[in-house]
Amino acid sequence: MLQRVDDRTADAVSVVPAIEVSHVTVSYPNGHQALRDVTFSLDAGGICGLVGINGSGKSTLFKTLMGFIRPTTGQVRLNGMPVARALKTNIVAYVPQAEDVDWNFPVLVEDVVMMGRYGHMGFLRIASRADRDAVDSALERVGMSAFRKRQIGELSGGQKKRVFLARALAQEGRIILLDEPFTGVDVTTENAIMELMRELRDNGHLMLVSTHNLGSVPDFCDQVVLINKTLLAAGPTQTVFTQANLEKAFGGVLRHFQLVGANLHDDDDPRGVTVLTDDERPLVFYGEQSNLRHATGTPHPPEDAA
């Protein structure tokens, strides 16, 4: 944390993108094409939202980044390395969706976080002092130290997320993939997670976050990748996360409310309000332009777009 400035300059020097996806097409054995010719690249030190409808290929993209699926054509490079080699160097951390975890598994909170250290341990996975310290500080950082002896199924939705976030912290991966981190999480935890992500970004980590939570994307993402089987748009949130692009990404799936004129307000402000939502926190546009504002009314913080 103290080295925040140094970290950034160090990363600015490195020219290799943290995630580089070039012309990736993924077809399943049954002929279904899940991704078609997807190309984008992301640099270290950022938070990127991955947005698309269910079945748009978000999880296929994650699986490809993790090497579960080999692209039919095209390639993925992480920090300039092929996926398999990158995984060996322990640079990718993964925070799974809540429903992908067996919450009855007989492990305690601290055991799960310790799993983040396995890549740093030897053949028999015996924890060293450094490993235990890393677990302690990761738990401290997500505010879960008091729960370390709990079995994971005894936690609330938000606490569960924090545990897996702590595991990613303990792993010290430079690239963190988060699969729907805000689903089933209360607002306090959501804000805490976002705050933590901002800290990590400032330390030079790259986070790729798949989310349905359209309303908070402008809040915490400085980049956005929009997909629907293929890449629709990728780039800085301000230029990419527009109403036009979102309509392209979601088609008729989004709930779309438009309130204009006397229906909306009785004053001289001529702007209408557009609300886009897929049933989580809604995204609100004022007027025609992508003058992004949060549903709760807080203006988009300028430093996020930097």
Binding site: F68, K88, Y94, P96, D100, F105, M115, Y118, R125, G173
Partner: peptide, 18 residues
């Protein structure tokens, strides 16, 4: 320990090079 990790969370097992 490696087996436990694979049984618990295959994605993470991959992420630590297993």
């Amino acid at each position: 320990k490696d087996l436990m990790l694979v049984f618990f969370d295959e994605s993470h097992a991959r992420a630590v090079g297993i």
